[in-house]
Amino acid sequence: MKQKRDRLNDESRLSRFTTHVVLIFASFLAFGPFVWMFLTSIKTYEETIQIPMKFLPEIPQWVNFSIVSDKLNFPQLYLNTILVTIMMIVGQILIVTICAYAFDRLNFPGKNVLFMGMLALMMVPGQIFIIPRFKLMVNLGLTNTLVGLVLPGLFNIFGVFLMRQFFSTLPRELDEAARIDGCSYFRTYWNVLLPLVKPGLTTLAILGMLNTWKDLMWPLINNSQADKMTLAAGLAMLIGEHTTYYEQVMAGGVIAVLPLIVLFVIFQRQFVQGIAHSGIKG
Rank of each mutant, 00 (worst) to 15 (best):
G279R: 04
I95R: 09
R133E: 03
L258A: 08
V192R: 00
A226V: 15
E58I: 06
G110W: 03
L119Q: 14
Q92P: 15
A236C: 14
T81Q: 01
S15N: 01
M87F: 14
S224P: 14
V90Q: 03
L193T: 01
L162G: 02
L29G: 10
P132E: 12
W62Q: 00
N223M: 03
R16V: 04
H277V: 02
P125C: 15
K54R: 04
V84W: 08
T244W: 07
I49R: 12
D70H: 10
M229H: 07
K228L: 06
G234L: 04
G274Y: 15
P152F: 00
R13W: 10
Y246G: 03
G279E: 01
E11I: 11
L194I: 11
P132T: 02
T203D: 01
P125D: 00
Q76E: 14
L194S: 08
E11G: 00
E58A: 14
P125T: 06
F74Q: 05
G274S: 13
F55M: 12
Q248G: 04
Q273Y: 01
W213Q: 07
R133K: 01
I128V: 11
G282M: 07
V147E: 15
I157Y: 09
N112C: 07
L39K: 15
T44A: 13
T143D: 04
R7H: 00
F55W: 13
I206A: 01
N144Y: 15
I131W: 09
R179I: 14
V160T: 06
R179D: 00
Y189K: 13
L149F: 07
W62M: 06
E176L: 00
N80P: 05
S224A: 04
W218A: 07
M88E: 11
M137T: 08
T188F: 02
